[in-house]
Simulated assay, not measured.
Amino acid sequence: MRIDSHQHFWKYNQVRDAWITDDMKVIQRDFLPEDLAPVFKENYIDGCVAVQADQSEEETYFLLDLAIKNEFIKGVVGWVDLRADNLEERLIYFSSYKKLKGFRHILQAEVQDDFLLKPDFCKGISKLKEFGFTYDLLVAPKHLPYVIEFVKRFPDQPFVLDHLAKPYIKDGKIEEWKKDIQILAQYPNLYCKLSGMVTEADWNNWNAPIFKPYIDTVIECFGVERVMFGSDWPVSLLAASYKECCEILELNTAALSQNEKDKLWGINANNFYSLEHEKVLTVTGTNV
Score class of each variant (00 low, 15 high):
Ala254Ser: 14
Ala185Asn: 01
Leu194Ser: 03
Phe115Ser: 15
Pro119Arg: 02
Cys192Asp: 04
Ala185Gln: 02
Ala240Glu: 10
Ala140Glu: 11
Asp65Tyr: 13
Thr253Glu: 02
Ser95Val: 04
Ser5Tyr: 02
Glu200Met: 08
Val77Phe: 04
Glu175Phe: 07
Trp265Ala: 10
Val26His: 11
Lys243Ser: 15
Ile267Asp: 07
Ala67Ile: 03
Leu275Tyr: 01
Phe62Glu: 03
Arg153Phe: 07
Ser95Lys: 13
Glu244His: 12
Asp232Asn: 15
Thr286Pro: 07
Ser96Trp: 03
Leu128Asp: 01
Glu59Asp: 13
Val288Asp: 11
Arg83Thr: 15
Asp30Tyr: 09
Ala53Ser: 15
Asp180Glu: 10
Val235Asp: 08
Asp30Thr: 09
Val39Gly: 15
Asp46Ser: 13
Asp17Ala: 09
Ala53Pro: 01
Phe222Asp: 04
Lys193Pro: 02
Gly132Ser: 08
Ile3Leu: 02
Gly102Lys: 03
Ala109Ser: 12
Ser126Gly: 06
Lys123Glu: 08
Asp171Asn: 12
Leu107Val: 13
Asn189Phe: 05
Ala165Ser: 10
Phe211Asn: 00
Asp136Pro: 12
Asp202Arg: 11
Glu176Cys: 13
Gly75Ser: 07
Asp216Glu: 11
Lys212His: 13
Leu87Cys: 01
Glu220Tyr: 02
Thr21Met: 06
Lys179Ala: 12
Leu238Ser: 11
Asp46Leu: 01
Asn70Pro: 00
His105Arg: 03
Glu276Asn: 14
Tyr191Phe: 09
Val288Lys: 12
Leu237Val: 12
Ile106Lys: 13
Phe150Trp: 10
Glu71Phe: 11
His163Gly: 02
Met228Tyr: 05
Met24Thr: 09
Val160Leu: 05
Lys166Val: 04
Asp156Thr: 09
Tyr12Gly: 12
Gln14Cys: 07
Phe229Trp: 07
Lys179Gln: 14
Leu32Thr: 10
Phe31Thr: 06
Tyr191Ala: 12
Val235Lys: 03
Ser195Val: 01
Gly75Trp: 01
Lys11Ser: 09
Asn287Arg: 13
Phe133Tyr: 04
Ile248Asn: 10
Gln52Cys: 01
Glu276Leu: 08
Lys101Gln: 15
Arg29Cys: 09
Ile27Gln: 07
Asn268Trp: 01
Glu34Thr: 08
Lys127Asp: 00
Leu249Ala: 14
Lys173Gly: 04
Leu63Val: 10
Leu194Trp: 02
Ile267Thr: 15
Arg104Asp: 09
Ile3Gly: 03
Glu250Asn: 15
His6Lys: 06
Val218Arg: 01
Asp114Arg: 11
Thr284Cys: 08
Glu59His: 12
Asn287Ile: 11
Phe62Asp: 06
Cys122Glu: 10
Gly132Trp: 07
Ile210Glu: 11
Ile215Pro: 00
Leu64Val: 09
Ala185Gly: 15
Asn70Glu: 00
Trp203Ile: 12
Tyr97Ile: 08
Phe131Lys: 00
His163Trp: 02
Lys101Arg: 12
Ser195Lys: 00
Val283Lys: 13
Glu71Lys: 14
Leu194Pro: 02
Asp46Pro: 02
Phe131Arg: 00
Gly196Leu: 00
Asn204Lys: 14
Gln186Leu: 06
Met24Cys: 10
Leu91Ile: 02
Phe72Gln: 02
Lys179Asn: 13
Thr199Tyr: 01
Gly285Met: 08
Tyr242Met: 03
Asn13Phe: 09
Gln14Pro: 05
Gly223Asn: 11
Val139Arg: 09
Tyr168Ser: 13
Leu63Arg: 00
Gln28Ile: 05
Met228Val: 07
Glu200Asn: 06
